[in-house]
Design a protein around this nucleic acid. Structure first.
Lengths: 336, 336
DNA sequence: TTGAAAGCGCTAACAT
DNA sequence: ATGTTAGCGCTTTCAA
């Protein structure tokens, strides 16, 4: 079933059918209707490959996300897709698993699918100009930026929260409530990524508050998973680590922390406060509800998509947007 | 940057480059290396559209899933993708939002992307032969089947759990523990879908146990969301509904139930037991951990993918697999 | 307003 | 072993 069959079916040429299919103006009403009717009858759907092979530019953009499909990323992807589709673009979503390089994956995807632009959800914070050479389309980094790299600011865009500030605020929320021994839970601190930045903020908060930093309070799970975090926190308790609050770098990890504490008969928040980051829907359904620094998920996605479209359509240079988190108080933190 | 440029760059013909790219045997080692080197240097990636335009059949299959990207579906999608990619197929994932028809979406996707087959994750249980006429590729229904429809068994495949039995077992787990007033929580009972089937099983269990059915114990939230469920359950408690246990048709909903009970100062499981279905990772991190009838997520995905591949490659007729749930005991249910 | 024909980038005969 | 060439299904000039 091709455009040719449709053409034959109603005794017109393929170009006429193509015109109708693409809503071109120069087709008589009668012919248009005849073709449309045939299309419906024959259940014809144009071959997309042929379409974007011939059209000089495609109308597709790509979203490349790292790791598992977390609810957090899914929210952003949803928001982006909405903006893209409203702008008449189709969206290709690609997941890069652990070990793959997101830039390489994105570059391949962009070439093979002839994408106009790329949005990365999560990735390394230390790209070099050589790294991005292989990318020949504009791109936006969502939820991360080039903190440790040396890209020129206008060679890419980013839409993020301020991770250092977030770490700072998280620690401050707990310090304000009288906590002095605050554990930090993450996968790895030296990953040149979110963990490292948020830990920097945490340290600054302690410093500003005149609290000595105790490196022992850094709990690294080694990998980003609930299971690893639960084990790590249980071990910390078993080892007699002394803390009255935990700052987990994400809500998912915070939930695992709460479970670990409960397993060790520590009550949240009476014996230990817990604070997360992300603002997942799930967080508010925990018992007690998880206090969290909510990322503006929708806004992150929408802004990211808009920035990318602006680069694609208007050739705008890179721009860098920093959005704010909002504190969602819950039952998981208390005064000491 | 096309295959032509690569050819020119190393002074060979396009077909030679194509041969190298497709690992055809009839190319001399020297030329092969030269081409590969050029490909790397020029950062060349073949245009996928051109590729599958020319190849008589594509190697792509589609996964169409309904509703939000729940962790449950994501697990299945992951398992399916793994099988497909090992079989040399690429996977296209499409989400159909509320209000759209999954069959229509799937049919369009299959035509436009020239898919060889389709896997549906979640959908109506009442397809008619006319409904599936528009589908010209084999398809498999995962997590649901044609319980209320009238498709011939070999016109499609399905891989599911037995939803009636699951409802039955869920109720039985609670009845065994002495519960007689068991509330059921779902979105809608008359949706010709999972809820309806599981409620049937629940009723059967009561009947077999000599417990009178009380329709008041059916709590319909109206929509499938944590928020709606929380409101509905809180209202039920406020209205003085008398129950000692809740069977929620999914873990996500069960988590919302636990929160609602906690908000109403009812302790789980002392005052009310809660049982879910799905076996989400998250369930075991609840406090108390959520008891659940776990679906064999991996197996569901793998089997679904294999069945579809079998239909595609061998033209096998539809087959219908029913997998078992496994009871994951948790702290959320207790003897009365 | 319509049709004929030239490609888009690639693969697969068919030649050489 | 390598090159030449005819399409795949579509859009888009260019003519009519």
């Amino acid at each position: 079933m091709t455009i040719k069959d449709v053409a034959r079916h109603c005794g017109v040429s393929v170009s006429t059918v193509s015109r109708v299919l693409n809503n071109k103006p120069d087709v008589s009403g009668a012919v248009r209707e005849k073709v449309l009717k045939a299309v419906k009858e024959l259940n014809f759907v144009p071959n997309g490959s042929a379409r974007d092979l011939v059209s000089p530019i495609s109308d597709a953009v790509g979203i490349v996300f790292r790791g598992d499909s977390s609810p957090f990323y899914m929210g952003i992807i949803g928001a982006m897709e909405k903006v893209f589709s409203e702008a008449g673009f189709t969206t290709v979503v690609e997941n890069v698993r652990h070990g793959q390089d997101e830039l390489w994956a994105g570059a391949g995807l962009a070439r093979s699918k002839r994408l106009r632009g790329l949005a990365f959800l999560g990735g390394r914070f230390d790209y070099t100009p050589e790294d991005i050479e292989k990318l020949d389309v504009p791109f936006v980094c969502c939820t991360y930026t080039n903190s440790f790299g040396r890209l020129s600011a206008d060679s890419y865009s980013s839409v993020t929260i301020d991770d250092i500030k977030t770490g700072y605020e998280a620690a401050m929320k707990l310090i304000e409530r009288g906590h002095k021994r605050i554990a930090v839970v993450m996968s790895n601190v030296d990953d040149r990524s979110i963990g490292e930045l948020r830990y920097m903020g945490y340290r600054k908060a302690l410093e500003d508050s005149g609290i000595a930093l105790d490196p022992a309070l850094l709990i690294e799970a080694g990998e980003y998973s609930m299971a690893a975090v639960k084990v790590a926190v249980e071990k910390a308790v078993d080892d007699g680590l002394d803390f009255t609050a935990v700052f987990a770098v994400s809500d998912i990890l915070a939930i695992a922390v709460m479970k670990a504490l409960s397993n060790k008969d520590l009550r949240v928040p009476e014996d230990c406060s817990v604070l997360g980051v992300d603002g997942l829907e799930m967080a508010s359904y925990m018992v007690p509800s998880l206090s969290t620094l909510a990322q503006p998920t929708e806004e992150l996605g929408e802004k990211g998509a808009r920035v990318l479209l602006d680069m694609i359509k208007n050739g705008s240079p890179g721009s860098h947007t920093v959005l704010s988190t909002s504190f969602v108080p819950g039952g998981s933190i208390a005064e000491i």
